[in-house]
């Protein structure tokens, strides 16, 4: 470890000693270590209690959001059974039909497409940046990736309508179907681009935590750089990679504006990549303003938000279980 002492520490200390020297004549006049010690302990305890209180807040917030959504959703749960709501495919609020299956299917479809596109590409790019790229390139590219993360989703949406939708439309003709371009595929592509920075950023952090020694050892045994990446870095950071992908997944589930502008918004279960879909966040964003009007509609939308939250929760739980199993196998 390279230790760099703060500048001028010696001089400062000398100065302080000089200033106090006329006060502290002998040991008796220096601050009593016992009292300072107690004061420090008290500070520590108080800080610990305070921080603990703050730490409980996120958990509290999750419960608050869940509870708030559940509270607002109880109106419709009182009228219709949950099973029917989740499995029915008719969405006609003014007739009292609130089937959410098309939205669940749409959400899953768009997210799966996005992850299938984003995960391999992001990981490959991250491996390249971590293992192959010269440091200058890495330092130049990292802010660009962060910039991608900072672009507002409205911009992604507009760009998606301009570039991705016509692309998908042309592609659909190649595949024999005719699509307007507003489709699950378009939504998935836009979402994938939005998820790139998340996965790359977290993966880079994880890769950098793999110690050089391991890499050097493998290289010295004659491995090619790709083999080092595959068998050493990826394997060692597999947990972190899963975490990165899950994070990207969570982001993909929750992204609203950009997807809704390109996905077609038809409440039907999509049967192909070129079919339009209707993910849950889009449902919320499109209809939020109407919530005040029809009370059952209001609570149906809150139920949709709750369902989305539960789905995200479920994925996170599953990922954690998977990770802990991997961890147990590794140790």
């Amino acid at each position: 470890m390279r230790f760099r002492a703060p500048k001028n520490s010696f001089k400062a200390e000398k100065k302080a000693n000089k200033a106090l020297s006329h006060i502290a004549v002998n040991n008796i006049d220096r601050p009593d270590p016992q009292k300072t010690q107690k004061k420090r302990l008290v500070k520590d305890l108080a800080a610990r209690r305070f921080m603990f209180g703050l730490t409980l807040l996120p958990g509290f917030l999750v419960f608050l959001i869940l509870f708030g959504l559940l509270w607002k959703a109880r109106a419709i749960l009182a009228v219709k059974p949950l099973g029917r709501l989740l499995l029915s495919t008719t969405w006609k609020p003014s007739q009292g039909e609130f089937g959410m299956l098309p939205f669940l299917a749409g959400t899953l479809a768009v997210t799966v497409v996005a992850m299938v596109i984003a995960a391999p590409i992001s990981l490959l790019a991250a491996v390249y940046l971590a293992e192959y790229a010269p440091r200058r390139m890495r330092n130049a590219v990292r802010p660009l990736i962060d910039l991608l993360a900072g672009l507002p989703s409205v911009v992604y949406g507009v760009w998606g309508v301009l570039m991705v939708v016509p692309l998908v439309e042309r592609a659909s003709r190649l595949f024999g179907t005719s699509s307007s371009g507003y489709s699950i595929l378009a939504g998935g592509i836009v979402l994938a681009i939005m998820v790139f920075p998340t996965i790359i950023h977290v993966s880079l952090e994880v890769f950098s935590s793999v110690s050089r020694d391991l890499r050097d050892a493998a290289l010295s045994l004659g491995a090619t750089r790709w083999e080092v990446a595959k068998k050493v870095v990826l394997r060692k950071s597999s947990q972190g990679i899963v975490a990165a992908v899950v994070l990207g997944l969570s982001r993909a589930f929750g992204e609203t504006m950009a997807v809704l502008m390109v996905v077609g918004n038809i409440p039907r279960v999509p049967k192909s990549l070129f079919d339009p879909g209707y993910p849950l966040p889009a449902l919320l964003a499109n209809n939020y303003g109407e919530m005040m009007s029809v009370p059952l509609y209001d609570s149906a939308l809150m139920l949709a938000a709750l369902v989305l939250l539960v789905v995200v929760l479920a994925f996170n739980v599953a990922a954690r279980l998977f990770l802990s199993r991997v961890e147990r196998r590794a140790t």
């Binding site: 409980l56 959504l69 994070l247 969570s250 929750g254 939250l309 995200v312 929760l313």
Partner: peptide
């Protein structure tokens, strides 16, 4: 707190980290 005060296998730390992951996934419109 999570890293310095909480112990290695603290249940609170696990739970709070899990909460953060869940909160991460909440859509901004919610």
């Amino acid at each position: 707190y999570l890293n310095i005060y909480a112990g290695r296998n603290s249940r609170t730390a696990e739970f709070i980290r899990f909460s953060f992951d869940v909160l991460w996934g909440v859509p901004s419109i919610v």
